[in-house]
């Protein structure tokens, strides 16, 4: 369309759209999809190099609603982390984005999720966290806060699993929290995650307007907005943009990512160093104790190798190797036969 803004690979933001959404009107998940679209557009990612993965849930349906030119894989409930691991091993040149829910990630898929991070599999993993099971109509999830009230009045008496904290402890190397309604913060955080090599976990609070948006819920739109506590404002600067930012010494922090791009964190009132693991965990604890949602880039570790490096994989994606590389010579089998004769 004439006049529409194009990115470096001549695509418009529209080119990153997907099928029409089937989420409830006003669902946080749709807002997150919009941020995903924005991030991919802004980072000029070629949709043909992207794979979209998910589990089961309302949230897990959303990969169908962005970037329809990319391959998608809607797995079974809770298994996206493992499926993504397999796909990453098969072709590490693809850019993986996973979308999951708090049920999918923090309950049925918790084990697989932890082990994906433990391996530091390269992925941008977004948890659309609404504190309930949307698709099965409103049961509490494992991220529901203690004391939060269900639509029918039932009170949750179990402590919540904090996914950002869990991610830090389990070995994820890029951990952020954000809010579905804050595209200004979320889109650059997704861009940063895409540039990062390793497990990038984004715990995005995403109110379920149908089952968890009432008085007494700590994940309602109103409650969340009132309790957001951003650590910093976030800007993303792609590697090809050599621009000078308004960089203020002592106020702004410049985080360099694997591909040369940068994230600029503009301080908001407090000193915060995302490379300090203990500080990150402490900050989360303090915020949880006071009922605040700490948002921003909470933790970042550029030093840990991603999974495929640990495995010493060859450069060509395993999926693209031919028989000449995959089938050893027959003489080698003869040698083994000879050993079996002993």
């Amino acid at each position: 369309m004439a006049g529409e803004k194009v990115n470096r690979i001549s695509l418009t933001e529209k080119d990153y759209q997907g099928a029409p959404t089937t989420m409830c009107r006003g669902c946080g998940h749709d807002a997150i999809s919009a941020s995903v679209i924005r991030a991919f557009f802004e980072s000029s990612v070629d949709p043909r190099k992207v794979i979209k993965l998910s589990g089961i849930g309302c949230s897990s349906k959303t990969p169908a609603y962005f970037i329809s030119q990319s391959f998608g894989f809607n797995a079974v409930h809770g298994r996206m982390s493992a499926v993504a691991t397999g796909a990453n091993l098969a072709n590490h040149t693809l850019i993986s984005i996973g979308v999951s829910g708090d049920g999918d990630t923090a309950a049925i898929g918790l084990g697989n999720f932890c082990h994906m991070m433990r391996r530091n599999v390269n992925i941008t993993y977004i948890v659309e966290n609404n504190g309930v099971y949307g698709l099965t109509k409103g049961q509490f999830s494992a991220t529901a806060d203690k004391g939060s009230v269900m639509k029918g009045g039932k009170v949750n008496d179990m402590p919540a699993i904090d996914l950002a904290e869990l991610a830090i402890v389990m070995g994820a190397t890029y951990v952020a929290r954000s809010f579905s309604g804050d595209r200004k913060q979320l889109a650059p955080l997704i861009q940063g995650a895409l540039a990062h090599k390793g497990s990038a976990i984004l715990d995005v609070i995403s109110p379920c307007v149908t089952f968890n948006n009432h008085e007494g819920s700590t994940k309602s739109l109103k409650y969340v907005k009132e309790h957001l506590d951003p650590i910093h404002d976030v800007d993303f600067i792609p590697p090809y943009e050599n621009i000078e930012v308004d960089y203020e010494e002592g106020t702004d922090q410049d985080v360099e990512l694997h591909d040369g791009s940068r994230i600029i964190l503009h301080k908001l009132g407090r000193d915060y160093d995302p490379s300090n693991k203990m500080q990150a965990v402490a900050a989360i604890h303090a915020a949880v104790a006071e009922g605040r949602f700490l948002t921003g880039l909470i933790y970042y570790d550029p030093t840990r190798p991603e999974f495929i490096e640990d495995l010493n994989l060859c450069e060509t994606p395993l999926a693209e190797l031919g028989q000449d590389m995959l089938q050893p010579r027959a003489e080698l089998l003869d040698q083994i036969n000879a050993e079996f004769m002993k």
Binding site: F73, A82, V83, T85, A87, L89, A90, N91, N112, L318
Partner: peptide
């Protein structure tokens, strides 16, 4: 997880 990784890998062509 083992089976799921097989699926992801097979889907991606390996």
């Amino acid at each position: 997880s083992a089976a799921s990784m097989v699926l992801g890998a097979g889907w991606a062509g390996a």
